[in-house]
């Protein structure tokens, strides 16, 4: 059954899933604009053009919605990275693809920083396990391909990916460039903050993580 254009009340599974996605799209936009501290369900409802209670038909609370958004961003990164894998690609090419895909879906990093502290405390165990299972399935499929395409020993794909995700999360956390007006800073201070830029910091560390995991040079 097709999705009726401009439906007000979702009547079938397809319309429901379209509405759910629409809510997540709006949440994504709002999160990037407002930051997670000022993220409010009322603002989200206004943006989608529905009532707050409609949002709660799809997600039990704000945390469940953010967890769903986190999972969706994560799966998108995995899918996009999967598309960029080529047999025998260099470590540098792989790590650049990795950082591109992560930066193209910034909600993942934004939400990851509050996973343990808030999101997962307010979500039912069932939802959490379902989310973990989904992420694990997609992640494992990618890991197997990474091991095959890059010629990694079994077990090293997951270690390398986990290390790279931790590295980029830590690097993004210390990246002050979105908060600073570099032009207004004296040069030596600007230099100090510039070297903290996420991509640069990530590539510096990723080179050695890759070499440690594969035993091969980066290029």
């Amino acid at each position: 059954m097709p999705v009726r254009a401009d439906f007000q009340r979702a009547r079938n599974e397809r319309e429901k899933s379209a509405r759910r996605n629409e809510i997540l799209d709006a949440a994504d936009g709002l999160l990037l604009e407002a930051g997670n501290e000022r993220f409010a369900i009322s603002a989200l409802a206004a943006r989608v053009g529905v009532s707050k209670s409609t949002i709660f038909l799809y997600f039990a609370n704000k945390e469940e919605l953010l967890l769903a958004l986190y999972a969706r961003s994560f799966l998108r990164i995995v899918t996009q990275l999967g598309e960029r894998l080529t047999p025998g690609m260099t470590g540098r090419a792989f790590c650049e693809a990795f950082v591109d895909c992560v930066m193209a879906n910034p909600s993942m990093l934004l939400l990851r920083s509050q996973l343990a502290s808030t999101i997962e405390r307010n979500v039912t165990p069932e939802v959490m396990v379902a989310t973990k299972t989904e992420i694990l399935e997609y992640g494992t499929a990618l890991t197997n391909r990474v091991e095959a395409e890059l010629g990694l020993q079994s077990g090293y794909g997951i270690r390398m990916q986990m290390a790279l995700i931790n590295l980029i999360s830590g690097a993004a956390q210390a990246d002050t460039s979105p908060y600073l007006d570099m032009e207004s800073l004296p040069e030596d201070i600007a230099d100090f903050f510039q070297v903290a830029e996420t991509r640069k910091v990530f590539m510096n560390g990723a080179e050695f993580i890759f070499c440690g995991a594969t035993g091969r040079p980066f290029d």
């Binding site: 343990a116 997962e120 290390a163 931790n166 980029i168 999360s169 830590g170 956390q173 910091v201 560390g205």
Partner: peptide, 11 residues
């Protein structure tokens, strides 16, 4: 960076 990244998903 790895340490600060690792702690985020310790659940």
């Amino acid at each position: 960076n790895q340490m600060c990244g690792a702690v985020q998903v310790d659940i």
